[in-house]
Design a protein around this nucleic acid. Structure first.
Lengths: 228, 228
DNA sequence: ACTATCTGATAGTGCCACTATCTATGATGG
DNA sequence: CCATCATAGATAGTGGCACTATCAGATAGT
């Protein structure tokens, strides 16, 4: 098919498709003449993947490029890909802009002691749950950053629910792996991991919200059946 | 304290603090003279909340403004706040830029079939789990969008793990409510909900990643004890 | 008195994700 | 055969966002 049809099939404008090709997200079409190229079903599929990662997963174009590079690299171990898809989440802020704070105190002199303490907590959790991952991994660091942020806004006690969260996370991860293991071809498996990781976050976040609304209604709404 | 100290205490530059005040995220300081204002501990706290929501939660300034407006509004029901914090997630794309696809048809007011089917799935899930929330809520719609995106990239079977996800989400939501219910003052409760919702997502995502790495290692890594 | 700091205002910066426009070609159909 | 349309590839421009820079005039503290 030609670019016009590709555009129609995916709802992505022609200039944007060209932009994605330039940016290395989408392979160029096969040239049938100097100014004519043909696109295949793989392009449709890839384009939908790109839009899903951007729109639903909230990834930046740069992040999508890296995820796709990982998907396309046949020598890449699955673990690596997991990390790849993971770290690129939350667009336009690679990780943390360094200075979580630089304050002097508030109740004492806790510099980024909050982050250091959070890292220790994370290491302890990993040990406790017997998770096989080395403590300095990006995911562990992201967790430490989130915990430190919670602490910095005075919600250090939120860490008390960490075990419940971890339990739920294990359950979700088991479901993820279960799904992923059904794939046969390596190519599909790898894509499943990427999709599952990124879109799974969005999926779970939405479910959590629904469950929260339900729980909140039962706790605060009391008598009423439906809350508006 | 004056603005310089507020800046030092929080690690946010003075121009940025002024910017947040202009944008309505942070109340202005109390003027002690025409060109001198004093800031309190509440400003430190609020500023840290803002940075946490932006840096860790990935919210945009506009989203933070709305969350904060909900926190500050004493007449706001908790449910409303839950929705508020929820919908603003994933920056710079309020919800969905409309056209998840055009498929072939794209005819006039025609809705995407994938999305319609996803909505039905969501309604069925809500019914099945007996969740008390009206089906058209933003969270339900977000879930439908995520499911539809999964379908559009050929992973409709991912929906099979939905029940496991929902189970885990309920567990997390129970933990959230448990934490939140400890708060006494309404002000604190409401802030806990906002913080817990936004930062909780980041927290859980990181935990999920760790658990995935662990599960993946057990499945694929086999013999080795530590991966790297 | 002198300097560092402050308020409030306006304008500018850099990044990002597209979009617009252009030329030169080739495809398509009556 | 020729008019009209679509296309590739290149370059430049747009709009949104989150800050940043600069300024004038006033004040605080030593």
């Amino acid at each position: 098919m030609r670019i016009g049809e590709l555009s129609r099939r995916t709802g992505v404008s022609v200039p944007t498709i060209k932009f994605y090709v330039r940016e290395g997200l989408l392979p160029a079409g096969r040239l049938t003449s100097p100014n004519q190229a043909s696109y295949e079903e793989t392009h449709v599929r890839r384009l939908r993947l790109i839009r899903a990662l951007i729109d639903v997963g909230g990834l930046s174009v740069a992040a999508v490029r890296e995820v796709i590079a990982a998907v396309d690299d046949p020598g890449r171990p699955i673990h690596d890909l997991l990390g790849e898809a993971a770290v690129r989440m939350v667009p336009r802020y690679g990780a943390e802009p360094a200075g979580e704070d630089g304050e002097d105190g508030e109740g004492g002199g806790e510099e980024d002691a909050g982050l250091v303490a959070a890292r220790e907590r994370v290491d302890a959790l990993i040990l406790k749950r017997n998770w096989r991952c080395f403590p300095g991994s990006p995911a562990a660091e992201a967790l430490a950053v989130a915990l430190a942020a919670l602490g910095s806004v005075g919600h250090e006690r939120f860490a008390e629910v960490l075990d419940d969260y971890a339990e739920a996370a294990e359950r979700v991860a088991r479901a993820d792996l279960d799904y992923v293991a059904h794939q046969v071809a390596r190519e599909e498996l790898v894509e499943s991991v990427a999709v599952g990781t990124v879109l799974g976050d969005a999926l779970f976040a939405a479910l959590r919200r629904l469950a929260q609304i339900d729980a909140s209604d039962r706790l605060f709404g009391g008598g009423e059946q439906r809350k508006e």
